[in-house]
Design a protein around this nucleic acid. Structure first.
Lengths: 205, 205
DNA sequence: TAGATTGTTAATCGATTAACAATC
DNA sequence: TAGATTGTTAATCGATTAACAATC
């Protein structure tokens, strides 16, 4: 049914969705065009139309796109009509920051568990969540059927935790550990290493 | 001199550097090959050789690359022979996490200033740094000649702060705010929005 | 010498852009 | 109707890969 959609196209859809939501909620706009959206995002209007054309026809000649409708369509395409429960592994500073982050709600995600291996952190409460022992992680994850995890552990622990997550059925991992993770086919990993991002920019300085 | 190098090539160099450092420091290896490095990073050996060929010849037929030498060369290419001072704007949970993050040291960066506009946070100490008033930011940045900043403020404040940073001479910004920033040509922005990263993966679930 | 691996070329593959007929 | 904007096609542009001579 859906023929192969390039991943680079998929990766732009959340950005479109985010900007459309801003247009609707903060500026009270009802309609927009590929040109306007592109202007705001620094992307060509042709690219936006081409990207959307992989999934259907969402606009009208002459008037552009109805923002509310396009938001709904993008949510369906990205499987955001449900709220995804997410496991957070690692309760260090960054783990705490993510556990407190309000931006997950209303955008499709909810952090439902936090794990750590530090006895000083286990049973600590973070924003209504109790930090659990990673030793219990396999069990908890298997029971819950969770599919997504955020990894905020030291590089030295990241691969072993990843293997555990994958074995427990997790198939999407957002990792802040500064290391490339080996995962089987079908498991998706997205990386965020601030140093790598900064180092890319120093090339130009 | 350097002809135009694709940005996608530049963005892979920090990942090569990171893995080479691990090979040297944690596994005590002295030499490696494009094949071994590619295996570990999930990248083809041809791509690694092609990427490096933009900058010179760093290997030897038959034996591959001397890791220490290649690390030095990559550090020079990426302008990491100096330590870059970085301004951190926003002292919320994520700002605290980044201020405490040990991973910047030895990889080319040092957070030298933290700013916030919340009177409750101003003058707070975070890991040896005193949080300063954003009202003083222009002055402090202008005096310091700082070129890089990390943005950890709400989306609603991000563009105004960005304009201030750019006016003060900052030309590389790592932003955690969930919004596209408008900057003049010559200013580089790198984004990190966990929700966008998660939403890319839900497409495949 | 034989085996291994580089740097580079040419071919392939994929993504972006420009242009425009269709039509609201 | 006139103006605006879509979805799509074809052309362009750029990135990846396969292959191999050179050589350590």
């Amino acid at each position: 049914m859906t023929e192969q959609i390039p991943d680079i196209v998929i990766s732009r859809l959340p950005v479109y969705l985010r900007e459309l939501t801003r247009l609707a909620e903060e500026e009270g706009k009802v309609n927009t065009s590929s040109h306007e959206l592109g202007q705001r995002l620094g992307i060509s209007s042709a690219q936006i139309r081409k990207d959307l054309s992989h999934f259907g026809e969402f606009g009208k000649q002459g008037t552009g796109y109805h923002i509310g409708y396009l938001i709904d369509q993008l949510r369906e395409i990205l499987h955001l009509t449900q709220e995804w429960q997410v496991a957070l592994v690692g309760a260090g500073y960054l783990g705490h920051a993510l556990a407190h982050y309000q931006g997950f709600e209303h955008r499709g995600f909810h952090i439902a568990w936090v794990f750590d291996n530090d006895p000083a952190k286990i049973n600590e409460e973070i924003d209504g969540l109790i930090v659990r022992d990673v030793a219990d992680m396999d069990e908890v994850l298997a029971e819950s059927g969770v599919k997504m995890a955020i990894l905020v552990v030291p590089a030295s622990a990241a691969q072993a935790i990843t293997d555990q997550l994958v074995a427990a059925g997790v198939c999407a991992i957002l990792s802040y550990a500064p290391i490339h993770l080996k995962v089987p086919a079908g498991v998706h990993v997205s990386y965020s290493d601030p140093v790598v991002q900064l180092q890319r920019m120093t090339f130009y300085l």
